[in-house]
């Protein structure tokens, strides 16, 4: 390994293609991650409510869904959705980005539902008992007493999910949807350099996710501050 040459190549590549990596690539990566977590949170909260409902079939469906998604690798889910969705919904034919986004959303919905469920269950049962004894209805207890306290547990974990998804979008590059890893493949094809674009991508991923995770830690501390009196 000649480190001097590698270093020179990295600098050269960065000067020539920095906009591809930093602007195009990150735009796709971060927008895909944001889209995934947003819709994943909506669908995930529905699944979490189903999982905790009194009606057994709803509970079973939600349990089977989460276990199936959590038991199989994400790459496999991407392949399955990518090849199956256009068959089931003709509208999605040749819309790679949408297919990949739907696969990521379905994946993250399962994980988010577990986050929300554990967040709600972490709220002391005494809170529910007290609210019910004071004559509040079940839905009122949920919206006024439980959820405001659960949000404190859920929000930091949801931000962590965003960070995880930011890393997981790199798998979507198998289908060339334009994210950072796709840009690596494109630059690799244009310059015949395999190693150097990867180093640049790793550096960008590291900076972004590291800063985000520090921000999440800050948020977590801020949210916990209210607890200790």
């Amino acid at each position: 390994m000649n480190f001097a040459v590698i270093g020179q190549n990295i600098v050269k590549l960065w000067l020539k293609y920095w906009d591809k990596f930093l602007i195009t690539g990150m735009e796709y990566t971060l927008s895909l991650a944001a889209l995934t977590v947003f819709f994943g949170a909506i669908i995930g909260s529905m699944i979490a409510l189903m999982r905790m409902s009194k009606i057994p079939p709803l509970r079973w469906i939600a349990a089977v869904y989460t276990e199936l998604i959590r038991g199989t690798p994400m790459l496999l889910q991407l392949y399955l959705f990518y090849f199956a969705l256009p068959q089931l919904i003709p509208f999605l034919n040749r819309k790679q980005y949408l297919c990949v986004a739907i696969a990521l959303i379905c994946n993250s919905a399962a994980y988010v539902s577990e986050i929300i469920r554990s967040g709600i269950q972490a709220v002391d049962i005494g809170q529910t008992e007290a609210a019910r004894s004071l004559g509040m209805s079940k839905s009122l207890t949920m919206t006024e007493i439980i959820l405001p306290q659960a949000v404190k547990n859920i929000l930091p974990a949801l931000c962590n999910e965003f960070i995880m998804i930011t890393k997981d979008t790199s798998l979507a590059s198998t289908f060339f949807i334009g994210d950072l890893m796709t840009q690596v493949l494109l630059v690799k094809g244009a310059t015949y350099l395999t190693f150097e674009p990867l180093v640049i991508a790793a550096a960008i991923y590291f900076v972004v996710t590291f800063i985000l995770s520090k921000l999440v830690a800050l948020l977590e501390r801020r949210m916990r501050r209210g607890d200790i009196r």
Binding site: K167, D168, S170, M181, F195, L198, Y205, F210
Partner: peptide, 23 residues
């Protein structure tokens, strides 16, 4: 720990495969 936890596994694998085991 920070480096390995905040970069995607695909990137780590490719770097080790092409970089380290390329040499």
């Amino acid at each position: 720990i920070a480096v390995f936890r905040s970069t995607p596994l695909l990137v780590q694998l490719s770097i080790i495969y092409f970089g380290l085991f390329g040499a």
